[in-house]
Simulated assay, not measured.
Amino acid sequence: MKRRTTTAALCAALLLTAVTTGAAVATGPHEGQPPREAAALTGTAGLYRSAGDDITFAFDAHLAAEHRDDPLEATGTFEFSHYLNGEGARAKAEVDCLITGGDVAVVTGVVTDSDLPGAEGRRVGVTVHDLGRHDRLGYSWAATGSPAEGGELPRCVSSAPFEKVARGTGDFRVVPWQPRL
């Protein structure tokens, strides 16, 4: 009899757990939990160059859930630098657009701080392909020249991710954008 009572109690507990878990999954996030952000690009990497250039990129760009349908509402920053033999420059940009699809992200921003003369106030764009240990990256100035030169770059524009991330670097993470269509 004791065995039947224990078995019945265990079955009742399992059934209750299954019902409450199913209800929680069906209703979505628990009250008080924020919904998943609409898109994101985060992480840091160095680029590979056979000449030994020291090139780094770091991203902290986000599109909040409530702005799911407007990538121009993205926020955050990204930074990049390029040095060779002690010469080069760095820049920090304020994000003004973020669009992601699958494991690819395009982010643009206006340079707010740089030691490259003429770069501040200019928009630049970067594309990241999140491939795990073999991430790739591209940037708008590959086609337009130095970020301090050229015409005004539109928001959400960059180049194909043609550069290879240096071995042992690259922890990019892309959260795919899923706009309501």
Rank of each mutant, 00 (worst) to 15 (best):
residue 161 P to T: 07
residue 155 R to T: 10
residue 132 G to Y: 12
residue 134 H to I: 00
residue 136 R to H: 07
residue 145 G to W: 05
residue 171 D to K: 03
residue 149 E to G: 12
residue 130 D to W: 14
residue 159 S to K: 04
residue 126 V to Y: 03
residue 166 A to I: 04
residue 161 P to C: 06
residue 158 S to R: 06
residue 126 V to E: 10
residue 149 E to H: 13
residue 142 A to F: 08
residue 139 Y to W: 13
residue 129 H to R: 11
residue 137 L to V: 11
residue 124 V to A: 09
residue 133 R to L: 01
residue 125 G to I: 02
residue 155 R to F: 00
residue 151 G to D: 15
residue 150 G to Y: 04
residue 126 V to Q: 10
residue 167 R to D: 15
residue 154 P to D: 15
residue 146 S to A: 13
residue 160 A to C: 03
residue 138 G to H: 06
residue 156 C to E: 13
residue 140 S to W: 11
residue 152 E to P: 01
residue 154 P to K: 09
residue 166 A to E: 14
residue 142 A to N: 06
residue 133 R to F: 00
residue 132 G to F: 06
residue 154 P to V: 01
residue 160 A to W: 12
residue 129 H to C: 02
residue 152 E to K: 10
residue 143 A to K: 08
residue 150 G to N: 12
residue 150 G to Q: 11
residue 123 R to W: 08
residue 123 R to V: 06
residue 140 S to E: 11
residue 139 Y to E: 06
residue 139 Y to T: 01
residue 133 R to K: 02
residue 123 R to L: 07
residue 157 V to N: 08
residue 123 R to D: 10
residue 124 V to F: 06
residue 124 V to D: 10
residue 140 S to T: 11
residue 144 T to C: 04
residue 152 E to H: 06
residue 126 V to N: 10
residue 128 V to I: 07
residue 125 G to F: 11
residue 139 Y to C: 00
residue 142 A to D: 10
residue 167 R to L: 07
residue 130 D to M: 05
residue 164 K to C: 02
residue 136 R to V: 03
residue 144 T to L: 15
residue 127 T to W: 06
residue 135 D to P: 00
residue 126 V to S: 10
residue 158 S to C: 05
residue 138 G to S: 12
residue 132 G to L: 03
residue 129 H to D: 09
residue 136 R to P: 15
residue 157 V to A: 12
residue 144 T to G: 07
residue 148 A to D: 12
residue 134 H to V: 00
residue 134 H to L: 05
residue 128 V to M: 03
residue 145 G to H: 06
residue 156 C to V: 08
residue 156 C to D: 09
residue 132 G to R: 08
residue 145 G to M: 04
residue 122 R to L: 02
residue 166 A to V: 04
residue 154 P to F: 03
residue 135 D to K: 03
residue 170 G to R: 04
residue 131 L to H: 07
residue 168 G to I: 00
residue 167 R to Q: 13
residue 167 R to G: 12
residue 129 H to N: 05
residue 147 P to A: 13
residue 123 R to G: 10
residue 133 R to V: 00
residue 160 A to R: 14
residue 128 V to S: 05
residue 146 S to T: 11
residue 128 V to L: 02
residue 168 G to R: 04
residue 150 G to V: 02
residue 143 A to E: 14
residue 123 R to M: 10
residue 129 H to A: 13
residue 144 T to R: 15
residue 130 D to R: 09
residue 152 E to V: 10
residue 170 G to Q: 06
residue 141 W to H: 07
residue 146 S to D: 11
residue 144 T to V: 05
residue 144 T to E: 13
residue 134 H to W: 14
residue 122 R to Y: 01
residue 153 L to P: 01
residue 162 F to H: 07
residue 142 A to S: 11
residue 129 H to E: 12
residue 141 W to G: 00
residue 148 A to M: 06
residue 154 P to L: 04
residue 140 S to V: 09
residue 125 G to P: 05
